[in-house]
Amino acid sequence: MLSIKNLHAGVEEKEILKGLNLEVKAGEVHAIMGPNGAGKSSLASVLSGRQNYEVTEGSISLDGKDLLDMSPEDRAREGVFLAFQYPIEIPGVSNINFLKTAMNEIRKYKGLEAMTAKEFLALSKEKQKLVEFDAKLVNRSLNEGFSGGEKKRNEIFQLAMLEPKLSILDETDSGLDIDALRIVSRGVNKLRSKDNAFIIITHYQRLLDYIVPDFVHVLSDGKIVKTGGKELALELEERGYDWIKEETVS
């Protein structure tokens, strides 16, 4: 589904990603771990098309289409979803109206008719239930005055509604208490299918107790330096990152 080849990217002349390779197939969950400053969030930004990042070399394709050629909105319409580490507040724009607009823009891109209000509301109810999202938050202004946990849960609710091919969860576990973490993880697990894929960016192994990955990658200094199964996360939790750095150097 996703193929990243020799990706070099940075901000203002500073190279952050230095030849990153990653292949993600439909149905897979990939965890990306790594020390601070390794380039984890930069990878999320580059994938979603944040424009202060400049790609200097390499390619990213989604089902054969060149992502780097696309605007952020077209990437979203093609099925890339970024769950933000810090979701943005937009006063006066209701959560539900925002989602309806997003959904219909994506449908329009795909040549589908806009959803009627009735269909949309029914779907919204169903997904709220699925990911245990508080109905009260649905009609409030987008993320305005939401707690940190509520914002993260709103990201998962949006994910459930928009049904993307590829979801990138950028440190979704940060700032979550254990109950919220469980709810978010349950939501993601329910949304996993053979047709979609997830990239989960996290500092901690804890999240991976709940969302069990197929692959764990260690990102260090802009490159994936080690790849393993879910056991690798446990090992990292125990031993830290330094041994890998040493391993790579030697």
């Binding site: 909105e73 979203a76 607009t101 997003a102």
Partner: peptide, 18 residues
């Protein structure tokens, strides 16, 4: 704010309107 809406499939024109 604009990027957040972009990342949900909403183009910049519509994002500013919203």
């Amino acid at each position: 704010q604009i990027f957040y809406l972009n990342a949900r499939g909403i183009d910049t024109e519509k994002a500013v309107e919203m």
